[in-house]
Simulated assay, not measured.
Amino acid sequence: MSPAVLDHLVIAARTLEEGRAWLEGRLEVPLQPGGEHHRFGTRNALLSLGPGAYLEVLAVNPQAPVPPRPRWFGLDTPPLREGLEGGPRLIHWVARVETLRGLDLTPFGEALPLARGENHWTLTVPPDGSLPGGGVRPSLIEWHTSPPPTRLPDAGVRLLRLTLGTPDPDSLRVLLDTLRFEGEVEVREAPQAELSALLETREGLVTL
C-alpha cells in the first residue's frame, strides 16, 4: 500500500459567506468557488495549499433539501452548531489513499461514492455523520478524478504543520502508522480532541 498523505483541511462555518469572509480576512487571499454536495446538502469554497493539498470552507446549503441521512463532519450535531456560533473553525482533516480496497474501514466509517461537478471520489463517512475521533482521526478519500489542487490557482499558502490533540495520542499514532501516513502532522496529548494548522502565507504565518 502506498503511504497515505494529507489531502485537505475542513473549516466549518454557519454560512459559506461567513466562512469565506473569515478565512480570506485571515489569509489575505481569495478563495475559489467550489460547489454543492447534493447528498449532504452542503456547499464549499476552496483554497490551494500547494500542488498536493487544499483547504475547504464548508457550510450547510440553505437552499438544499434536508438530506435523508445525517450530514457529514458533524454539521447536524448541536455541539458543532453551538461552537460555530463563535465563528468558523478548523474541525477536521482528510487523508488521501491510493485505494480504499483492502483497508479496515471500521475506525473511519462507510465508503461512499460521491461527486461534485467534474469531481468524483470515494470518502469514508460514519453512518451517524459524526466527526471521526472528534475530528482528529482522518476521513479517508480515494480520488477517481484529478484532485482539486491540480486545478486550483496557487495562492502562495502552504501548510507547515497540522497539530492534533487527543486524550489518546498513542492510538492515533498507531492508526496513522497503519496507514503509513507521511506528512507534517504532529500528534500530542490533550484533554479533548482539538486541531490547529500552521500556515505560511505571503504576509506571514497564520494559525487556524
Rank of each mutant, 00 (worst) to 15 (best):
R180G: 14
A95N: 12
L162E: 09
V174N: 01
G109S: 10
L164C: 15
P88M: 07
L103E: 00
L195T: 10
L179S: 12
G165Q: 10
R188P: 01
E189V: 06
T124Q: 13
R89W: 02
V157G: 00
E189T: 11
H120D: 06
E194Q: 14
L162A: 09
L176W: 13
T150I: 00
F108H: 14
D154W: 00
A111D: 04
R151M: 05
G83Y: 00
E85Y: 00
T166Q: 12
L179H: 13
E142L: 06
E98G: 15
R173G: 02
R161E: 15
L159V: 03
V94L: 05
P138L: 13
P191C: 09
S196D: 04
T201W: 03
W121E: 09
V94M: 06
L205W: 10
R158Y: 04
P138S: 11
F181D: 11
G183A: 10
L199H: 02
L152W: 01
L198C: 03
A190P: 03
W93F: 14
L172W: 11
L112T: 05
A190E: 12
L100P: 08
V185R: 07
A197T: 12
G183F: 05
G102R: 10
L164E: 07
L198E: 15
L176T: 13
A111P: 15
E184Q: 14
T166K: 12
A95W: 10
S196T: 15
L103M: 03
W143Y: 12
P149Q: 07
